[in-house]
Design a protein around this nucleic acid. Sequence first.
DNA 1: TAAAACTGTCATCAT
DNA 2: CAATGATGACAGTTT
Length: 789
Amino acid sequence: FREWKLTHQPKNRAERGTQMLSLKKYFTEGLIQFTILLSLIGVRVDVDTYLNSQLPPLREIILGQSSAYTQTQFHNLRNTLDGYGIHPKSVDLDYYFTARRLLNQVRALDRFQVPTTEVNAWLVHRDPEGSVSNAQPSPAITLENGSGLQDGTNPDNGMRESGAEQGFGEELEDLGAVAPPVNGDLTKEDIDLIDILWRQDIDLGAGREIFDYSHRQKESDVDKEPSDGREPGDSWRSGGNETVERNVLVDGETGESFPAQVAGVEDQTALSLEECLRLLEASFPFGENSEFPAADASHLNEAVPSGSVSPALQNGLLSPLLTETESPFDLEQQWQDLMSIMEMQAMEVSNTDTEILYNGTNGDPLAANYSLAPSTPIHQNVSLHQASLGSCAQDLSSLFSSEIESPSVASSSALLQLAPDNSTGLNTTFGATNLSGIFFPPQLNSTGNETTGPGLPDPLGGLLDEAMLDEISLMDLAIEEGFNPVQASQLEEEFDSDSGLSLDSSHSPASFSSSEASSSSSSSSSSSSSSSSSFSEEGAVGYSSDSENVDFEETEGAVGYQPEYSKFCRMSYQDPSELRYLPYLEHVGHNHTYNMAPGAQDPDEPHLPAVAKKSSKEKQSDFLDKQMSRDEHRARAMKIPFTNEKIINLPVEEFNELLSKYQLSEAQLSLIRDIRRRGKNKMAAQNCRKRKLDTILNLERDVEDLQRDKSKLLREKVEFLKSLRQMKQKVQNLYQEVFGRLRDENGRPYSPNQYSLQYANDGSVLLIPRPLADQQARRQERKQKDRRK
DNA sequence: TAAAACTGTCATCAT
DNA sequence: CAATGATGACAGTTT
């Protein structure tokens, strides 16, 4: 095959050269300009994939000959096949390349991606506010990024989930930069900084207005232009909302409008008040003296239909539901949780890639495209959907069922809930009555107040709280005992780090830096144009894979396995041990077959007459000499009268018989014994190595499975927490409603400072004086703590 | 040419 | 105890 390369490659190149000359003008004048135009508005177009496959890559026409034809980039296959690679010794290359070609087609579909309406709207929305210049990427992009997240329509979502498909430049773009990506401008530090700031933004629960340029503009221009309280981009939200306009609240962080109605009593058929409250009491680790800004109280006044409610009232009102803070929030830990979810998402998407690839023979490309496309439309639909149901009108069952029906959406929803959605769906839930401040411990709340002003707590703060997880367990939704996301994440990071045991699973921000670092440190010259795709497609091996090579494997003309690949190669499809059943493989050129079949390829005299006849005797002897092992040479030198194959493979009895037939010298006998021992040991070593490889691969698969499981569990956890919040909100609303309607003998409302509602075990609701209620609450709390210990 | 991967061999222990 | 298998370590060979 190497010969083939040598003879065909130059010809190939020449042909390509002439083709290129004729094509260059055409392309550069037409399509390229169009492409550049598109890229300037942030649309990625890969024209190559729409050209005749015989033509060289457009990239190559423009930039000149690539290294695609001079290097064998077989390891790319591994990276692209991702988890389902084949053994390097396998010759099932047709399948291999078929798979690759299909993958390329699928990716091509993915690349020519006309942005959806939502994306366009987003871009337009950002543009007039002064598009971000790439010259100063980090701060500007960070702001944009934060805003995009808060909008809940940030395509970054898709990026983080699809993980691999889009490149460096795209990531920037997805992070919110509207300007065309310039890969070289952003250093790794910049990316890290973006990431860190991005995390901080969410950590601090930064109010949306912090990022929202239009909002700031609104504030400054408030005199000139009285706004209707809605930004242009939000116009879609108002559709059909006019009827509840009167009761609409605006979430301070998302700017989202939602009806302020509280859940009616009649909603409680599914979930009894008692259950809700018990649940609430059991699970509320928050401080008793939580405070919230007066602004919240005013919202509350709107929210509660009957009676006037003072802040003090709310304090008292909620106190029976509140317990003391049990443990300080560990934001770092929560972040690790979050990040690990993201990594899981990325991994799953990459796995999806692979599955599509391998089902590619019967799957239709459209379906593949649907799944593979960075799925901004899908995610955004989800986001919008969840934002709309965030106001807790949505029933839990329908929430779950809807996601079950569309698994692709479900699998991607966790991230949404964590990133942008935390400010839409979740925060909407809590912001509905703007009581969210009460639900969070003072520390966190104060942090939010200091940094963001209007006291909007970090929705993520409680989202991944381990205490809440425990509560879920109490709810017979037990996820697992002793689950430690910190350890798990750390473990995961260890695996993700370039240990040589590539899991090919993470293109997450966490592994981003290492991957990129290894890419930049590798010697091959990945130009800036190719770095975008090499970043996303290379595995943890750190090999730079030029996009040209990835895209057009047919032209590489390189077959043969790469050492890089074979060490931890995968044998899902071809196990080396099967090779012995395919005797023709013996002539492929590699004589590394394990478990060599007896007599299958003993180069000793009588076995290769057909080959031998074709050449002269000298050549034949040379050939045989080269083919013979050292022991065979020794055996011949010692005039051993039978073949080494027999010496090694004969059973002991037959072997002894054989020895007894001949009169052999002591030296000969010794050599024969050595040959037998070495021969057997040789096979043993081969078996041993194969076993070792199998073990590693199995472990790798196990790790992937476990990571999948972990991701699933984390997703479930997020779902549970989300539903728990919704339930809490419902209960809270109910409590207010019920309490607000209570009247004493004189028709006056009860003061929440003096009374609170208690729920007896028999389902009855009691109005009891507050001191008593406080006592009971403390008692309950102690019980809880004891039970946990 | 250096480095990595591959292979055969030996020593040793286990079966 | 002999034969054989398994495996770490090492060295030579190949890529």
